[in-house]
Design a protein around this nucleic acid. Structure first.
Lengths: 334, 334
DNA sequence: CTGAAAGCGCTTACAG
DNA sequence: CTGAAAGCGCTTACAG
């Protein structure tokens, strides 16, 4: 089968110029009603569909949105990609997906390729809150950008993500109710704003609740980091009452490792997560965790991007969406 | 910043025609050595990069590969997407990702859009082994297609996926060693070849090992289906010695539900999975499961696609890659 | 309201 | 070995 029906074919079929055919099809004002109908009918009959490539070359707009994520396969990210793809489809855009593997130089390369592709906009989960900035700033002016999930140090684009402070606050309120007085931390380093904010919120809230801070560990958003954190915290001396983790994956790593070392969750120590993905609900014990409003984040991100693409020039926004607390077996003393 | 360096700029800078500039840059034969060097130098200096849109319009080739999956967010699929994106990047292609949500009509629409985009090739995880065929067959002749993970009823394209029969065989050999004599099944319906093959292999191997087939349940590749399967199998009467599941997610659903109903895995019944994703390693108990060779599947799929794109016209291949068995706590009687 | 023409940036026969 | 020109399929000023 060949999809070779061109605008010229439609024009010929309707007995008009391709200029008129183009205007009729795209709903431009200065065309007569009957002309529009006639052209439309022929187009439908012939199965004509506008060539996005030709249109992109002419208009400079591709109706393509690029998205760069650190790792496609991480559950929280794939969940976000899923939601973004859905929103984009609704708005008539296609998704060009790229993986930076968490490396700034790969990110730079990918960003450049997306720029060359004339994407109308880019959604980026920055690999580093500082080092990722230059390549974002250097993007062509006509490409809209929205940072998702992870913000940059300085406001160089719109941003949508979860309210980390609130998330950690929900965790602490719950832990306080459980009678926790000594907390450990298994989070991530300063490479991302999520790492920084969850870490700072942890300390701020421990203080506010009058809790003592025990051993802390900062690595990456991975299971392995959770395992390392558990080792570090156990080796550091007396176990805290609870370990606050920077993600569900970390929490699961922590719990698995504790179990291997003969410690039980929640009997010996409570553990909390962050993200609220499927893992948190199927794991044993289920996790008490902060549930990210993934769909809302995706919807907001796409909507901000559309606004920028439409030429919006308001001040950069930093939208922090409220998460919810999910209670699970990992903190239930019962 | 503006990325407006065009071939004309390079040509002007080097003092040659754009035709020569084009040939020099693309390494075409009939250009003098020094010309090539001069043009290349100017191009580098100016930061010139070929415009993929213009090239695509001219050549009909976009260096874009489309991929359609039923659900981006399902772990096994996102893992596959991850691997595919990696392979594609290595080959100099970008990934246009689309989600069919498992509906044939959405799939048809997405397929059409990808065709319009002039993607050079398409990787598809078909939503239905029968109903997905027409839209694949109707793709423009110049778009290469490779089916991944799920085959179609008839060979209408190359295919790469796991060897289901072998996977189930590995499971049965292990179960036989565990002294299992009565097996239940928690799998999926006939919509996919994986559903069909795992179901048929299950029966074939139960017979071969002289095992009795107990209650069986066929739903979807989801946790919820696992939950429903557990209920069905428990309600059906005496528990089998083992329940063979069609995916890790199903297995986890089965185990969770059994636990809710006061039954222990592996003490009361053994349970096996299929896929071998992270979930199988972090769940408690860890799963005995069939580990898919995900990276190899992705590499093979991309390689077959490249072959087709290069004009290969050999007979359609059906590549079945060997999986491995992973032993876990879900079948350890110890 | 409609048409002829330019032009988006490239590649490749066609001449020389 | 190099250049002038056509053409990929569209949209949009510019005329009429």
């Amino acid at each position: 089968m060949k999809s070779n029906v061109t605008l010229a074919d439609v024009a010929a079929g309707a007995g008009v110029s391709i200029a008129t055919a183009s205007r009729a099809l795209s709903g431009k004002p200065r065309v007569s009603r009957e002309m529009v109908d006639r052209v439309r009918a022929v187009a439908t009959e012939l199965g004509y569909r506008v060539d996005p490539i030709a249109r992109a070359l002419r208009d400079g707009s591709s109706r393509l949105v690029g998205m760069i994520v650190p790792v496609i396969g991480i559950p929280f990210f794939s969940q976000l990609i899923d939601a973004v793809e859905e929103e984009l489809g609704r708005a008539g855009f296609e998704l060009l997906l790229a993986d930076s593997h968490g490396f700034v130089d790969e990110e730079v390369r990918r960003l450049r390729v997306l720029g060359d592709r004339r994407v109308d906009g880019i959604l980026i989960i920055a690999s580093d809150r500082t080092a990722s900035m230059p390549s974002i700033v250097n993007l062509p002016d006509d490409i809209a950008v929205v940072a998702v999930d992870r913000a940059t140090d300085k406001p160089i684009s719109d941003f949508v993500g979860v309210d980390n402070e609130l998330g950690i606050e929900l965790i602490f309120e719950h832990l306080a109710e459980q009678g926790v007085t000594r907390v450990g931390f298994a989070g991530t380093d300063d490479a991302t704003t999520n790492g920084v904010e969850r870490w700072q919120s942890f300390h701020r809230l421990a203080r506010r609740h009058g809790m003592e801070v025990g051993a802390t560990f900062r690595g990456e958003f991975s299971l392995e980091s959770g395992v390392a954190a558990a080792d570090h915290i156990v080796d550091a001396g007396p176990l805290p009452d609870a370990i606050v983790s920077g993600s569900d994956q970390i929490a699961v790593g922590v719990i698995s490792r504790l179990r291997e070392r003969g410690l039980d969750v929640p009997k010996d120590v409570l553990v909390t997560g962050f993200d609220g993905g499927e893992l948190s609900r199927v794991y044993w014990p289920t996790l008490t965790t902060v549930v990210q409003p993934t769909s809302s984040i995706a919807a907001d991100a796409v909507s901000l991007l559309m606004g920028r693409m439409a030429g919006g020039t308001s001040a950069y926004r930093r939208n922090r969406l409220a998460p919810e607390l999910q209670l699970g077996g990992s903190t239930s003393r019962a």
